[in-house]
C-alpha cells in the first residue's frame, strides 16, 4: 500500500474515533476572574481626555460675579448716597455694607450664591466632562 493510500485509509476509517474525542474535548476552562483582570489591565491604557477650557466653563463664574455685582450695587445704594470718591470708597467698607442688611438676608444671599456655585457645573447636561477646575474651588 502506498503512502497516499495509507493516509486515505487512515483518514477515512481510523480517524472517526479521534474526531469524536475532539468533539468532546472543547476549550479549557478559564481561570477564575480572568475577564475581570484582563479588562482591569486594559482600562488604564485608555488615555484621559485632554484638558481644555471652553468658554462655557466660565458661565457659572460670570453668573455668580454678575449676581455679586448686583447685590453689591443694592447694598451700596442702601448704605446711603455718596457723591465723592472718598464717600464711594467708604461705602465699600464691610461694616457699612453689613450694617445695611439684616442677618437673615445675608444668610439667604450667601446660601443662594453657594448653591449656584456648586450646581452650575452640573447644568451642562450632555457633556461627559464636568467643570473639574470649577468644582475644585468649592471642595
Amino acid at each position: 500500500m502506498s503512502d497516499f493510500e495509507m493516509q486515505h485509509d487512515y483518514n477515512d476509517h481510523n480517524d472517526d474515533q479521534l474526531n469524536q474525542l475532539f468533539e468532546q474535548l472543547g476549550p479549557d476552562a478559564l481561570p477564575a476572574g480572568f475577564i475581570g483582570r484582563t479588562m482591569t489591565s486594559i482600562r488604564p491604557t485608555i488615555e484621559p481626555e485632554p484638558f481644555r477650557i471652553q468658554w462655557l466653563d466660565f458661565v457659572p463664574a460670570f453668573v455668580v460675579a454678575a449676581m455679586g455685582a448686583l447685590l453689591l450695587f443694592i447694598w451700596l445704594g442702601a448704605a446711603g448716597a455718596h457723591t465723592s470718591f472718598e464717600q464711594s470708597f467708604n461705602a465699600w467698607r464691610l461694616d457699612q455694607v453689613l450694617g445695611s442688611i439684616s442677618d437673615v438676608q445675608m444668610v439667604i444671599l450667601c446660601g443662594a450664591i453657594g448653591m449656584l456655585w456648586v450646581i452650575m457645573p452640573y447644568m451642562r447636561s450632555g457633556s461627559k466632562r464636568r467643570n473639574v477646575w470649577f468644582l475644585s474651588l468649592v471642595q
Partner: peptide, 8 residues
C-alpha cells in the same frame, strides 16, 4: 467570547 479559546 474569545477568551476560552485564546487561553486554551
Amino acid at each position: 467570547h474569545h477568551a476560552r479559546y485564546v487561553f486554551t
